[in-house]
């Protein structure tokens, strides 16, 4: 028997901590109770004086686990109590209920979007690359949701500027191009998981919006496109120094596949936010028709930030 005594005493990592003491206590309290209920006379103090030390070493596991001797009723009570304490976990099961699943996931994405907005550094710039790191033009994918070319009449094209701006109206491409041209080698990250480093040139969105007297405290910039794509961007990102109304790639005017004549280019956003074939831009606090973006309205994250 002595040999079979657990080696726990030596190996216990936290000797003499609370569990041991309480184990002794509870065992001492509970043991007499059960004897009384059996109608036995509590069998005296004889073993007790030497009990605590010996008892304790046998009554805790190798890691100092609290050990108790309980009746099956007591065990049932303990287990029920512990089971009840796990009830909060049932909440996660709500994800399995079809009716609740979508709202819960929307909340999750909403939380992520909220945190993303908080995290966004207005002056923190996305990585820029040297010309050597830029992929050749023919390896920059044409990614489109519907048509690669919505056949914009480039000669007659104008940009419609609406919403909270002092000078709304139709703007020619030349009027967008009068601002200092920003050229940047940045990473275009697709939500699918691929990315390419490309060369982009254009007007800072903030330069253009200031010139048309936009309310820069508004919440969103909404855009509508010739291919019926639409997007909405948070104003903090719109005003970011790397956010462009892009009219050039690789030193050439945007080609039809990449959104001629004007697209959004934001290295702090995922690809699906970078709308091509811009027709209309609108500064607003309320999204028109509650529409957030072509893909966002089907379930993508609205913020889509990098």
């Amino acid at each position: 028997m002595a040999d079979e005594q657990p080696t726990s005493a030596e190996d216990r990592r936290e000797p003499a901590d609370d569990p041991k003491a309480s184990a002794t206590e509870s065992a001492n309290q509970e043991a007499p109770k059960s004897r009384e209920s059996d109608g036995e006379i509590p069998r005296a103090e004889e073993p007790q004086p030497e009990q605590p030390a010996a008892f304790a070493s046998a009554r805790s596991g190798p890691a100092g686990e609290e050990v108790r001797d309980v009746t099956s009723r007591e065990r049932g009570r303990i287990n029920r109590r512990e089971l009840l304490k796990l009830v909060p976990l049932i909440a996660i099961g709500a994800f399995a209920i079809p009716k609740l699943q979508e709202p819960l996931l929307m909340d999750g994405v909403g939380l992520s979007d909220w945190a993303s907005g908080k995290l966004f550094g207005r002056h923190r710039e996305a990585q820029t690359f040297s010309n050597n790191d830029v992929v050749p033009f023919d390896r920059f994918p044409y990614n489109y949701y519907d048509v690669v070319d919505p056949e914009v009449d480039l000669g007659r094209w104008t940009l419609t500027v609406e919403g909270l701006v002092k000078r709304p109206g139709e703007y020619k491409l030349q009027q967008v191009q009068v601002f200092p041209k920003v050229v940047q080698n940045t990473r275009h990250v697709c939500v699918e998981g691929w990315d390419v480093v490309g060369n982009f040139g254009g007007t800072r969105a903030s330069d253009f919006l200031r010139s048309v007297g936009a309310d820069l405290t508004a919440r969103y910039l909404e855009v509508e496109c010739a291919d019926e794509y639409y997007e909405s961007i948070d104003m903090a990102t719109v005003l970011h120094p790397q956010t462009l109304f892009c009219y050039e790639m690789y030193g050439q005017p945007l080609d039809r596949g990449h959104g001629a004549p004007l697209r959004l280019q934001m290295p702090t956003k995922l690809g699906y936010k970078q709308a091509k074939y811009l027709n209309t831009i609108r500064v607003t606090n309320v999204l028109k028709g509650g529409k957030r973006g072509y893909w966002e309205d089907q379930g993508y994250s609205w913020y889509g930030g990098l």
């Binding site: 569990p19 043991a31 059960s34 004897r35 069998r43 805790s60 596991g61 686990e65 609290e66 050990v67 108790r68 001797d69 309980v70 009746t71 099956s72 065990r75 303990i78």
Partner: peptide, 11 residues
């Protein structure tokens, strides 16, 4: 003394 008890450890 306590033949009908169960030993349990809080793991």
């Amino acid at each position: 003394e306590k033949p009908d008890t169960i030993t349990v450890a809080y793991e």
